[in-house]
Amino acid sequence: MSPVHYVALSVILFVIGGVGVLVRRNAIVVFMCIELMLNACNLAFVAFARMHGNLDGQVIAFFVMVVAAAEVVVGLAILMAIYRARRSASVDDASLLKY
């Protein structure tokens, strides 16, 4: 089995996610893009695990999912708090923490 297609898909997803993080202003979309990048990584892990015939990559994929879930919980909570305070979910507006 050749992992080329899987890796290519993973790269495409990762780039889409990365560009999304850099160019989108809406925090929720940024979040979704981060999830996309994480899942692109998961895909690569799983593909290589399958290629090598062991479970290491799959186990790591589970870890990544758990961490991603936890991250979303904390991140969305912060997002809610910011939205309530500023009536905006734009990441460019939340720029008080600076020089």
Binding site: L22, V23, V91, D92, Y99
Partner: peptide
Amino acid sequence: RIQTGFVRSYALSML
């Protein structure tokens, strides 16, 4: 002055 508070530029530097 590097600390702009502009989150997307941080993301770019991380990338």
